[in-house]
Amino acid sequence: MAKQNRPTIVRLAVYWIFASGMMGLIIGLAFATGVVEWVYDELNTPAWLLPTQVLTWLWVAKTMWMAFILWMVDRFGHSWCRWASMGLITLLFAASGGWITGFVILRDLTVGFYAILVSWLITVVTLLLIGRAHKAAGMLMWPVFIWTTYMTAVSFELMRLNTGLQIAGL
């Protein structure tokens, strides 16, 4: 892409507005449907589950961070990896819809776990590819991977503790 056609700060603002809207939807649904109380008051939770406020702010930060990474790849990325990375990041945003459906709307711990597991797998593929498009964006993707790994572990543990799932040694 010619330098004069590269996305500007306006596109970053659009990405951040989109990410903010998505976060508003997730947080609004979580609090309006009583999912927060359901998880923290009614379910068996792991001792290492972060408090609601910390989880919320970290989720917001991760989503806004992903929008920034998307812009970096869009603006500075190169080769076919640029388009593939942008597609994978967009797919990660869409994967949040699966988690919203399974965990927040259906209140199904198993569906929520599988949704976040798919998101984790997409994150791994993105992490492996994005560095080819833009090295700094590849480094910035690590916090997203760490966060998604933590949330996958939380979802698994919630499912295990509350559905009677028996796994040897756990």
Rank of each mutant, 00 (worst) to 15 (best):
G28R: 03
F18L: 14
Q4S: 15
Y15G: 03
T90N: 10
L91A: 15
L140P: 02
V144I: 12
Q4P: 00
W65C: 08
L158C: 02
L50W: 12
Y114N: 09
T52Q: 09
L92S: 07
L55R: 05
T52L: 08
I9N: 07
V118G: 13
T33E: 13
I89M: 08
I100Q: 07
H78D: 12
T152N: 11
G97V: 08
Y114Q: 08
W83L: 12
G164T: 01
T149H: 02
H78V: 15
G21T: 01
G112A: 10
Y15I: 07
V104C: 10
G138I: 07
L70T: 06
L109P: 01
V60S: 05
R107H: 15
L158N: 01
R160N: 11
R11Y: 11
C81Q: 13
V124W: 09
V124Q: 04
W99V: 14
A84T: 11
N5D: 15
L70A: 14
M151V: 08
A19N: 03
T52K: 09
V125Q: 06
G98M: 09
M23D: 12
L106P: 01
G21A: 14
A95F: 03
V54K: 04
W16T: 02
W16P: 00
W48D: 06
M86W: 00
G97D: 11
L165T: 05
A95Y: 00
